[in-house]
Simulated assay, not measured.
Amino acid sequence: MRLKHMQFYGHFDARCDVAGFSIARMVALNPAHQVEPHEHEDGHFIVVLSGLYRSSARGVDTLLEPGGVLWNPPGTRHVDTFAGTGGRFLALSVKADLAQALGLADGGARRLLGATRQAALALAAQPLTSDLGGLLDAEETCQHLCLLTRGGPERGEALWQPGAERGEPLWLRRCMEQLLEECEQPLQLAALARTAGVHPVSMSRAFRRHYGISPGQLQRRAQLNRAAQRLKEGRPIAEVAASLGFADQSHFTRLFRAEYRCTPAAWREGFKTF
C-alpha cells in the first residue's frame, strides 16, 4: 500500500503547510491489526508525543517513548503502531522532490538523536498556526531539522543505518539478510562465514564495524521481533517462546522486556480487540 501526501493512520488534531513541508499533530486511533504494511510517497519525520511507538522499518528497531524521533525517507516500507491505543505524534511530511534536493532521499530510516532530535522537539513545541509569523518560524525550524538530519550520521547524532557506511561488502549484506530470514535456526557462524568465503572472526568484526552489533545480537533482535508479531496474533506466550528456541518462558520474558519495555503478556494484551 502506498499512501499519498499527508496520509497517516490517525486523526488530525491540527495541521499547517509551508514551503514544501506539511506539519500535523495526530492521534493514533487504529488498532495495530488494522495497520497494513505501507510506504509513503513523501518522506516524513515522526515525533512521539505520548504512548509507546514502534516501527518495523529496518534501522529503527527500538521502541520509542515520548520524545523519540525518527526519519523515514520516501518509499520506506514499514508498519508503525502504538502499544495500546491513544498514542499521539507529530508528523512532518517532506515532499519527495524536496527531500531529494535536501539530500534526505537516501540512507534508510533512522532514529534521530542529539541536536537533530532537539530541533524536532522544538518544532513539536511550536503552535500550528496559519499566521505568517508562525509559518515562517515553522519553515525555519523545518529547514534546520532537515540540515541536521542530512549531516546527522557524520556528527554522531543518529543511530546506525543499514548500508549507510560506505564500503559495506555485498557478502556482508547477504549474511545479515540470511540471519534475519533464518533467525529461528541455531546460529551457525562458521557455516555462514564459510558460505561467504571469510573467516568467522573477520565476519564478526565486519558486523560490529558496519552494523554496531554482533551476529548473535542481530539474530536475537530478529527473534524477538518475530515473537512480537506472533504475540500480536494472539498465540500463547509459552508456545511462542518454545517455537523460537528460548530456554524457558522466564528467560524469554526477561529478554522481551529489555527490548520492548513491557512483558509479553502486556504486549499481547495491547493488541486484543473486543
Rank of each mutant, 00 (worst) to 15 (best):
E157H: 11
G134H: 08
G114A: 11
A99Q: 02
H78D: 02
R110V: 13
L104R: 03
W160C: 07
Q143L: 13
E165S: 14
W171T: 06
L187V: 03
E181M: 06
G108W: 11
F89M: 13
Q178V: 07
A101Q: 14
R173D: 09
D106R: 13
L112K: 02
T81E: 02
G163P: 08
G134M: 04
P127A: 05
L180T: 06
E182M: 14
L187I: 10
D137E: 13
Q178M: 06
G114V: 04
L128F: 13
D106G: 07
P186D: 07
E184T: 15
G84L: 05
R88P: 00
G87S: 05
L170A: 15
M176E: 11
L179Y: 06
A119H: 06
L121Q: 11
A125S: 13
V94P: 02
L145D: 02
R88F: 06
E154F: 15
E165N: 04
G87V: 00
P186K: 04
F89Q: 05
Q118Y: 10
D106K: 11
H144T: 10
Q126L: 14
L148F: 14
R173K: 10
D106L: 09
C183N: 10
R166V: 05
C183H: 10
Q100Y: 00
E177N: 13
H144L: 12
D137I: 07
E181V: 02
L170H: 15
P127N: 05
L132S: 08
G151S: 12
T116A: 14
L128M: 06
A109R: 07
R110D: 01
G103S: 01
P186F: 05
A138P: 01
G103N: 06
C146V: 13
A101G: 11
R155Q: 14
E157M: 13
L128A: 09
E168D: 12
T149L: 00
A83C: 05
A99P: 00
Q185C: 00
P186G: 12
W160S: 13
E182V: 05
E157P: 01
T116R: 00
G86M: 02
E139N: 12
G167W: 15
L128H: 08
A99N: 08
G86Y: 08
Q188T: 06
E168R: 13
E140D: 11
D137P: 00
L136H: 12
L128I: 10
G114K: 01
E140Q: 13
L180Q: 02
G107L: 00
E184W: 09
L90M: 15
T141F: 00
G163K: 11
F82E: 01
S130V: 07
L112F: 04
A120G: 05
K95V: 07
